[in-house]
Design a protein around this nucleic acid. Structure first.
Lengths: 93, 93
DNA sequence: ACAAAAAGTCACCGATCGTTTACATTTCGC
DNA sequence: GCGAAATGTAAACGATCGGTGACTTTTTGT
């Protein structure tokens, strides 16, 4: 599942939590937050703390992967010419 | 890049920002936060707001994808028997 | 239908967020 | 080596987080 908004994140967490047959209380305890926090996250609370969110995902055995959104314009030279030239000028190989 | 900690997130953001040749000020303005916020996020601040983080990633054209961390134990029945049986009993198809 | 479990709501509170403005330090081109 | 641009620090401040505990509503099992 792609996550672009807090609501997306909430949905992912809730789905996975239920898949694992955990109730909010058990889940909250597992990640060390209050039950209130779980309720709010699943609701899509946009101001939740990053660290707690990552702990939650970890507890659900979920891992985030960041990738460029651009469909498939892949190929456009994996090398950054500018950067290489700049370094060359500096003599840094 | 897999993101498991706030520091991972910070690294991903910083790398991508530089790839895009944006300075902190420009980046901050683009996502509507203070420059300080950018500095802290790139440092791995664990209590950053989820919403702002998502806006930042979006501005960098990065998308998060949540996947189960378990290497490849894929296969274990994609169907949740219990859930299906439960629903059947309730008559919900 | 009923009781129990799970989920959601409320008010209060200390802690910390993110903003702003100004200054300090580091990095870069030339 | 200079000067400018980029990056990092600091202090003050209003706003909001997340925790707790008690209560209400919804869902679930039988």
């Amino acid at each position: 599942m792609k996550i672009r908004t807090p609501a997306d994140l909430g949905a992912v967490i809730r789905d996975r939590r239920q898949q694992l047959k955990l109730d909010q209380a058990g889940f909250a305890e597992k990640i060390g937050v209050s039950r209130k926090w779980v309720i709010e996250i699943e609701r899509g609370h946009p101001r939740a703390e990053l660290g707690l969110v990552l702990r939650a995902l970890d507890a659900l055995d979920l891992v985030l992967d960041a990738g460029t959104g651009t469909a498939r314009p892949r190929k456009a030279s994996a090398v950054d010419i500018d950067a290489i030239v700049a370094k060359a000028k500096k003599g840094k190989t």
